[in-house]
Design a protein around this nucleic acid. Structure first.
Length: 759
DNA sequence: CGTTGATCAATTTTT
DNA sequence: TTGATCAACG
């Protein structure tokens, strides 16, 4: 403590007093490589923000010489705000804080001409990329049936994230499929350039190319960004690692914060070894471990610790509680997903009444977005204000994408993706046939599609078509002029007026059209806000780069009072007093995991979910759940068994450890296996009955819940012999079971006729 | 050229 | 369950 005073006599020791010893050491170790392993809720953001504040205030570093990279825009925004509140307002404005993607997009605007792109490049989102990939495949005569576009897209993205460029990919492609993908990859990269476009991954790859080809730019940036900080380091991929390394190479002031236990993005190329091997690159690195948790009760942390301890590929660390035991974890068991959601709603209402909790204190998590619908319905039925994060992003809505495509085209007329999207929307009598002719025309002359549209007069097309095309280009050119002089707001208002996007929806007069209309209005007011917040840089280009990297997850929870609904992934970095983790079922959470590595990631995800809770944690599961429109039997997640049953209670308040043990199907030989592990024991206390009020009519028992077959049940068939039940569909007379027979393979049989014997 | 109907396919997680 | 894609028709 006094050391800080000695070094910085007039320093803001008051703000450093708000830190524990390890946190303070991490803040004060400003020079050289530093890694902070920060457990959940251990004050990670605090350390980063205080460190930045300390660099500016006490060390005298200019804000613009600090580069802080985050994983989400939201984290960036919050960080900037917190630094502002530690120092004085506005101190953080010239800091470089943002996601890898947004920071490098910004840098590329200034430098990308050096590697042959125009500064007005478009940024392609995943949908744009897929559509371009589809086009490439078509040209290569590869049908999406044998080679799914999604697969190609993820393969290419994965390659890019690992900095494997087409030549190397080609060399490594041994099997038939990867050779095909290699061809697509090559063509796709070529086409992106033709479109003067970068996809998400390019935003990280192009800087590396730039630095390699133009070492002087790299030197310049190395000198400029004297201090580099990276948040959520466990979720960085290889390209991010490389680019960070390049920038930090000169001053070596690289500071990374992360938690290997919270690495949940390996499917997106995140490489956990970045954090595990930090010391290999920076042997002299100082390492700090933050394990003091300031968020959750001891009960919650006990659960989290015991779950994560099952992972082998993990740096051992246990979170230490600063709070008391708190309440036990409640396990909710429901007979289907509807009832599950209903119970969640009931608990929210009851806690709100008994504890006076605000709606904003609650969060409901789920593994997949598809689960949100039922929960949403139940919230609405129970008149609980809620907000869904994610789901269908605002920016992915058709009307928004249309408007954005226009804007992109205005700025970058080589963006043929956008051109194709809007050339005949709203309808202008320019059909597929004409477009194909135009494409040929462009190819022949080796000009961009837009150029071809402009020069259609030379192509000997029908006068009516040429006329329609000219009207279209006039529109675009007029907006281009507006874009040069005015703001994004000016361009968009003009766009709405001249293209008829708005009036088209007005005429339709359906509720959906109305919603779309509102969305477009919302987009317009966003441009207005944007101009207010960025008076000096509110051009169309500025606006477009911002929104192409924005997502719904960025919306900060303002003062509005609602229950938050989101996927577990979206919950990373957040905290709530009361958390419900729903869908705790095998094959859902953990989701189908075929490899042990994937199971470990699911477990980390569960760990993230648990550690979001401050005071009270609910885990819930349903015995049956609709999937693909079909009811499926479910088994309780094994993750539940990884928590000490002494700290879990059922809804009735009975300890899980005192409930009948869940017995594996094999151990129940000779007896039918029944679903519930929480069935009240004979002679058990009557208080164990679920106290919640059941709405009349929902008490209908389904056959499904009573089935004697569940996945895992061993059966004997007169012809096919012995087998194991894989899944159960339907109920009653129509009930079918899918069985894997030892000799006959997989069969789906009607229970009614199959004459199965349970063994 | 645009609309309709039918068929089929898919459900992880996101910058 | 929803959404997307494609063929045939107006």
């Amino acid at each position: 403590m006094w050391a800080a005073n000695l070094l910085f006599p007039e320093a803001l020791t008051d703000f450093l007093q708000g830190l524990n010893d390890v946190q303070r050491q991490a803040v004060l170790a400003t020079e050289g490589p530093v890694m902070v392993l920060a457990g959940a809720g251990s004050g990670k953001t605090r350390v980063i923000t205080y460190r930045i504040a300390h660099l500016i205030r006490n060390v005298g570093v200019l804000p613009q010489n600090i580069l802080a990279l985050t994983f989400t825009n939201k984290a960036a925004g919050e960080m900037r705000q917190r630094i502002d509140s530690i120092l004085e307002y506005g101190s953080a404005s010239s800091l470089w804080i943002g996601t890898f993607h947004s920071v490098f997009a910004r840098l590329l605007r200034s430098y990308i001409h050096l590697i042959g792109y125009d500064r007005n490049f478009s940024i392609f989102d995943a949908d744009d990329s897929k559509s371009l990939i589809k086009q490439c495949m078509k040209e290569l005569n590869l049908s999406p049936e044998t080679l799914p576009v999604n697969l190609v897209h993820s393969a290419i993205s994965k390659a890019k994230n690992s900095f494997v460029l087409p030549p190397e990919f080609h060399r490594k492609a041994i099997d038939d499929q990867s050779q095909k993908i290699s061809l697509v990859y090559e063509r796709y990269v070529h086409k992106l350039r033709e479109n003067n476009a970068l996809d998400f991954d390019d935003l990280l790859i192009k800087p590396i190319e730039l630095f390699t080809e133009q070492p002087r730019v790299l030197e310049q940036l190395q000198d400029y960004f004297k201090y580099l900080l990276i948040d959520e380091y466990q979720d960085t991929n290889r390209v991010q690692y490389l680019v960070a390394k390049m920038i930090a190479e000169k001053h070596r002031n690289i500071f990374v914060v992360g938690d290997d236990a919270q690495s949940i993005y390996s499917w997106r190329g995140a490489d956990i070894s970045n954090i595990l091997n930090f010391n290999d690159d920076y042997g002299d690195a100082q390492v700090f471990k933050l394990v003091d948790n300031y968020r959750s009760t001891k009960t919650i942390l006990d659960a989290a610790n015991s779950v994560i301890s099952r992972n082998t590929h993990q740096i051992k660390k246990e979170l230490v509680a600063n709070a008391g035991m708190g309440e036990p974890i409640t396990l909710i068991e429901a007979f289907n997903e509807k009832r599950e959601a209903e119970k969640v709603a009931e608990h929210i209402k009851s806690i709100r009444l008994s504890k006076g909790a605000q709606y904003r204190s609650f969060a409901v998590f789920y593994r997949t977005n598809a689960q949100s619908r039922v929960i949403e319905d139940m919230m609405r039925q129970n008149r609980i204000p809620y907000k869904i994060f994610g789901s269908v992003s605002f920016y992915k809505r058709k009307e928004i994408k249309d408007a954005v495509a226009y804007m992109r085209l205005v700025l970058n007329d080589r963006d043929s993706e956008s051109l194709l999207r809007v050339i005949n929307f709203p309808p202008r009598k320019i059909g597929d046939v004409s477009i194909n002719k135009l494409k040929e025309f462009a190819e022949e002359r080796n000009i961009s599609l837009y150029e071809a549209v402009k020069r259609a007069g030379e192509g000997g097309f029908q006068a009516r078509l040429v006329n329609a095309l000219t009207q279209f280009t006039d529109l675009i050119e007029a907006m281009r002029k507006q874009a040069e002089e005015g703001t994004a707001y000016d361009v968009l208002s003009m766009l709405y007026e001249t293209t008829g996007l708005l009036s088209l929806l007005k005429e339709e007069n359906t509720p959906e059209a109305l919603a779309r209309h509102e969305n477009l209005q919302e987009l317009l007011s966003m441009t207005r806000d944007f101009a207010d917040h960025n008076p000096n840089s509110a051009t169309l280009g500025d606006f477009l780069s911002t929104i192409s990297l924005a997502s719904d997850y960025d919306e900060t929870q303002e003062s509005d009072n609602y229950v938050s609904l989101m996927t577990v992934h979206a919950a990373k970095g957040l905290e709530f007093p009361v958390v419900f983790v729903t869908g705790m079922e095998e094959k859902l959470f953990p989701l189908n995991s075929y490899e042990p590595g994937e199971l470990e990631e699911e477990r980390r995800l569960f760990y993230v979910a648990i550690t979001r809770a401050r005071e009270k944690l609910f885990l819930s599961w349903a015995q049956s759940r609709y999937m693909y429109g079909q009811p499926q039997m479910c088994m309780r997640s094994t993750f539940i068994n990884e928590i000490n049953p002494n700290i879990i209670v059922t809804e009735g308040g009975r300890k899980l450890s005192e409930s009948p043990k869940k017995v594996a199907a094999t151990a129940m030989a000779g007896r039918p296996v029944f679903g519930s592990s929480l069935r009240p024991q004979p002679g058990g206390s009557p208080a164990a009955k679920v106290p919640t009020v059941k709405p009349a009519g929902s008490a209908r028992p389904t056959g499904a819940a009573k089935s004697e077959y569940r996945p895992g049940t061993r059966v004997q068939h007169a012809i096919f012999g012995p087998g194991t039940v894989l899944e159960v569909q339907g109920s009653g007379a129509k009930q079918k079971v899918k069985i894997n027979f030892r000799t006959a393979g997989e069969k789906t049989l009607m229970v009614q006729y199959a004459n199965l014997k349970i063994v």
